[in-house]
Design a protein around this nucleic acid. Structure first.
Lengths: 214, 214
DNA sequence: TGTGAAACCAAACTGAACTCAGGTTTGCTT
DNA sequence: AAGCAAACCTGAGTTCAGTTTGGTTTCACA
């Protein structure tokens, strides 16, 4: 993800908004949201601390924006990956691959998302933060819905055995995003290998047959 | 989990340590670690804010202690559940069941653990916090090892097809704990049902056969 | 070259985590 | 029961990151 992926329509040409988001993604991804000083983000961009408030209402508002953009990307990527798959099984495999076809910056973004997802549970005091939070919740719901629909399509076509599609979707997502908790770019395992491994796991979860039940 | 589950050997009879931990588990579990005021915990216990520092070096030290005790419980529960299972398949099913056989307080504790696991990645400044963090990391490693050994046992016995046991263990754990992100006691789904669903998923992931590959 | 909006900043403020310098309670010893 | 050490607790602060205030600077465009 380049800096453009963090740019939104209403940013003027002089706007440092994307640069702030990029710096924040780096900081939050490296040492975590709480551990990063808001002023450190300002330093990296090369502006004073108070200039941040021209673009974001608060540090939390910035975090929520990062999360929303990450969720939006995931939603878009899912749709693109599954759009022209002929069968649900192929779409499933394609969707998992898409979930791991990310730039290093997007990996950071996913780690941030994963680590701070609990933030979406409780109401925010300020209006703009609450708006971002609601947007995030809608995107989460939409993404869960995407997977649910895919599963139901496969079940209806007889490709997958019948299961509760909502819980199955959540479980798949839970498995897929759990990788961001331990994956590090400098680790022993490449993202490609992880992607394949998880995809196979997902396929067995959804379409696999079970061994003797005790 | 009663208050005893939060008591440790070196607590005197007058110690409010377990009470503080119990109150903190409630607060952190309900509104999250960052959102709970340290003074709120003191209020619930019925002591002044500064009395907290007689027992914990900091709010983070308290959190890390809660996490360590939760991890310890998970480790113990796994060993108890899998100790006298004759085969790996039965042990796997038993281990997943054990992971969900929890009191409401332990559910909170697992939610806290899951939400703040990223805290274990970076070094802590203070000595006691760092000690708790190291203890947590060791427990995480031990729990991952427990699952890895179980998987290897099953593969060696021919019960499971061969897979990378370390990643598979992490994936299973990722799937299992992902439930705490969305599960709520007042939700539509009971923990029993979830447990069974996830157990079946785990069995298919580990021992299931895959459908036609693309 | 004058104007308005966007961008920016230094200094002051806020509130929650934390420290300090003691005071109080408890249980044990004699 | 008196003495006493350890454990326990507190009010009055300090600190520090995030935030607010009250402006000044920059720049596109008329």
């Amino acid at each position: 993800m380049s800096i453009e992926a963090l740019t939104e329509a209403d940013d003027g040409p002089r706007s440092k908004r994307p640069a702030i988001l990029a710096a924040a993604v780096e900081c939050f991804g490296e040492v975590g949201y709480e551990a990063t000083k808001w002023s450190e983000v300002a330093d990296r961009v090369g502006i004073g601390q108070t200039a941040l408030y021209h673009y974001f209402e608060s540090k939390a508002h910035c975090l929520l924006t990062i999360m929303r953009l990450g969720l939006r990307n995931s939603d878009v990527a899912f749709r693109a990956a599954t759009a022209e798959a002929p069968d649900a099984l192929g779409a499933l495999r394609s969707a998992v691959s898409a979930a791991y076809a990310l730039s290093p910056q997007e990996v950071h973004q996913n780690r941030i998302l994963q680590a701070n997802i609990a933030l979406l549970a409780n109401k925010r005091a300020s209006a703009r933060e609450e708006a971002e939070r609601q947007a995030c919740r809608e995107l989460v719901a939409r993404i869960e819905h995407n997977w649910t629909v895919l599963l139901e399509r496969g079940m209806a076509a007889g490709e997958f055995p019948r299961h509760d599609s909502v819980i199955m979707a959540r479980s798949l997502l839970g498995l897929i995003v759990s990788v961001w908790r331990w994956y590090r770019p400098d680790g022993s395992l490449e993202l490609d290998g992880i992607s394949e491994f998880i995809a196979d796991c997902c396929l067995r979860m959804v379409a696999g047959t079970q061994p003797a039940q005790r």
